[in-house]
Design a protein around this nucleic acid. Sequence first.
DNA 1: CCGGACACGTGACCC
DNA 2: TGGGTCACGTGTCCG
Lengths: 217, 217
Amino acid sequence: MTTTPPCGATGAPARRVITTSRLLGIAHHRHRWPGEGGRKQGPRTEGPTVTHMEAERQRRDKLNRLFCVLRAAVPTVSRMDRASLLADAARYIAELRGRVDQLEANARQRQAAVDLASAPTTMTASYPLGGSRLMEEKLEVRMAGPEAAALRLTTAARHAPARLMDALRSLELPVQHACVCRVGGVTVLDAVVDVPAAALRHEAGLRAALLHWLQVS
Amino acid sequence: MTTTPPCGATGAPARRVITTSRLLGIAHHRHRWPGEGGRKQGPRTEGPTVTHMEAERQRRDKLNRLFCVLRAAVPTVSRMDRASLLADAARYIAELRGRVDQLEANARQRQAAVDLASAPTTMTASYPLGGSRLMEEKLEVRMAGPEAAALRLTTAARHAPARLMDALRSLELPVQHACVCRVGGVTVLDAVVDVPAAALRHEAGLRAALLHWLQVS
DNA sequence: CCGGACACGTGACCC
DNA sequence: TGGGTCACGTGTCCG
């Protein structure tokens, strides 16, 4: 009779009787056919009612299918109950949200350390580093021939070599020669790069571009 | 009559009529009282039926409350429909799961470098690079004192300086000295780094960790 | 007037 | 024997 098994295979839409236990989300009811078998509602054998019945049945089926979809999405289903499913789904969503927030906070914290090493810069950049201390960075750019430039970055910031190399990579400036030397707390970076892009073949523009990429490192 | 508004304030459990639109999740129906108002079902005015009615009503109310709970847990509710809510909840759970997996994978990848420090690797690593071409990279690691190491990377890959510096930054290895020289199509990178982490103070482990970060650069 | 959406009461099933 | 749950048909509202 007319019951399609919840969460069952999407087989024939024929109405059928299921006799298995409901613990697998299977329904099993013995219902009479309103017009045929044992009747209970005397009147109403007319036209508009049957379409309504069918519509309501399809609505129920859709809800059942969606319940099954949700059941498949929630791994922690305590019972096969509809109510338990709704409660578990809400609880699971809250748990997932908590985990996402925590993981994103961790990722953000890791990123914050990197961001702290960079900063707004104009001619000489000053920015907080390692707590509240202020630190300075100097970048000199000198064209060495039409398609080559010599750079010198002097800084006390951490990870200066990585940041400069990232900037050079972002600007597609192949490194022909580079030398890093650290003395005391200051790092001196010398480099000679090719400048394939004509737009970067002047000292001011090249320097501005490099400073930009040093910030967003 | 008998309808408690879904998602309404948890006020008195008295049955009441709501006349507002349903777009806010408010129900509004005019139903007759089976025993009192206009009757439709002739028989059944006995005992066991009334408790069943009440039980079923409480069940419906519970389901409605749980629907509201779920609705509050899902931020992306397209429509106030029950079916839409179930579908959106499942979709939202899938989205959250995806984000959690991705964030956890990121965190795991960060952790992998430390684990790799105690794993053996081959001497020269080869992996696909720049599309489908296979490229070889040679990395030599030699400890220079208890807390310092000398590295030499020889490669034909592009952006080798940036990749090596990124690896050093990821492993928190301060660069004391570095020198880059490009001859022909090959880049030779020499570096001397501090090794603050005791776990990395052996050539094989340090080399494996560096190779890992060079790959994921 | 029709299709969608709910709530309701009821029969049937399970533990 | 009951408490709990589901499916069903129906009435009724809305757009």
